[in-house]
Structures are given as C-alpha cells and as structure tokens.
Write a protein that binds this DNA or RNA. Structure first.
Lengths: 112, 112
DNA sequence: TAATATACCTAATTTTCTTATGTATATAAT
DNA sequence: ATTATATACATAAGAAAATTAGGTATATTA
C-alpha cells in the first residue's frame, strides 16, 4: 500500500480508464479490479469511490443501470458518449503529467 | 498547466528531490526551478509551498539558513542527514507508484 | 511612476480523502 | 447453528492538502 497522499487526485482517472475499457462495472467490482491489477498496492476506499461515482454521474460522464442480483442490488456504471471524450482527455492528461514527473524527478521507468 | 487535482500529493516529493540534488535552495527558487524544468506545466503556489516547507522543517527533514540579500530576506532550506533517507524513500515510493499507475492505466511512457 | 519580479508569510475556504457508521444479503468456517 | 468474512450499496464527520486571497516589503524594468 502506498501512502495515501500519493493516490490523491488519481481516483477519477482510474475509474474512467477502467470503465472506458469495459462495457460496464459496478462500484465494488472496480475496487476489486484495481486491487487485483495492482497486487493490493492500490485499494480504493468506498468512502472515496461512491461519492466520486455519484459526482461523475451528476456531471453526465457516467450513466447507471441498477440490477437485482438475487436479493442484492448492483449499480452498474458506464461511460456516456459525452463522457468518452472526457475520459480520454483525463487519461491523456495524466499520461502527460507522469512524463513530466519522470523528467522532473529523474526517474527511470521500468520497461516490461 | 495540469488540472490542480493531479498535482495533489506530489509536492513533498518534488521539494525533497530538488533539495536532495542541490546544496540548498530557497522557496521562491524552488517555484522557479520547477516552472523552468516543466516548461510551466507545474507551477507551485506559495500558499502550498511555504506551509509544506515549514512542516518539513518542523519534522527535522529540512533545516534552514536565513540570509540577507541586499535588504531582502532569503530563507535557504537544505535536507538534514535524517532527511536524506526520508527523501530517498519518498522518491522511491513515488517511482514505484508511477510504475503501478503506468501498468494500471496501460500507459506508454515516452523514452528520452 | 507604474508594473512586474523577487521574497517572505498566513488565513479562510474548498476539495478530496479517510475513518466511521449504517443497512442488508450470501457464503464460508467453526 | 453461529460467527466471520465477503458482497454491495450508502452517507456523514473529520482530517489533510490544496487553492484563493490577502498582507508586507524591496528591486528592477517599462
């Protein structure tokens, strides 16, 4: 787990990237996917995730689809058409930002 | 200029990296150096910078040396011996974090 | 002489997150 | 059977970290 301050400001970008690549995902699924992909290094907290999802929906970037799975509720989120462009911009901006930080901090990114 | 949320959480790391590589720097100098190195893409605000410098000093990570330049005051900061280890850890953690984000967001870092 | 640059600082507010709490069902372990 | 964990949503109080705005003051350039 990284110190929490590092993760600040990346939540929206992570959500939009994951949702851009799959048709739809629900909140809990996003937390599990991020945990899995990062080997537990990034674990989204629900207190941060849900309000952000609600905000993105209110902004028209995400749309929702509530489904009943057994007796439990699942709220699927997907990127709207308007949202797709914004998602792309967000990821591109973060990519550019990372390049800048690598240069500024003189880091050598690991090559796969 | 990046949207402000991206820069959140990176300030300490930037300060500690720059100060680790030069003998000493003063606050205003740090803002100018960052602006110069990033082509204006990252511009530290004084309202964030000075309180952070004070906090790092209070924690014993930085030490200060006040100098008179003409009739103006300049407060030089340098990394203490204890601070050097913490600075290294901070930069390494951020480097690791960036690797994780590159993988998670499937980014292709530009190679110099 | 007015504007910009240098150089420090703090305080109110806002943003964004953590921590804590709440509700409820499903499954695995004891 | 019952307890713990996992699934699945949500909000609210508080903390952390930034922005915005303001303050003081000297030096330089237009």
């Amino acid at each position: 787990m990284y110190s929490s301050e590092l993760i600040k400001g990346t939540l929206k970008t992570i959500i939009l990237k994951l949702l851009s690549e799959s048709d739809k995902m629900y909140g809990y699924e996003i937390t599990q996917k991020v945990k899995e992909l990062t080997g537990g290094k990034i674990q989204l907290t629900e207190g941060a995730l849900y309000p952000t999802l609600h905000a993105l929906e209110a902004q028209g970037i995400l749309s929702t689809d509530v489904v009943n799975v057994g007796n439990r509720i699942r709220k699927y989120y997907s990127v709207t058409i308007t949202g797709k462009q914004i998602a792309k911009e967000k990821v591109n901006e973060y990519s550019d930002f990372i390049d800048t930080m690598i240069f500024l901090l003189d880091l050598k990114p690991k090559m796969g």
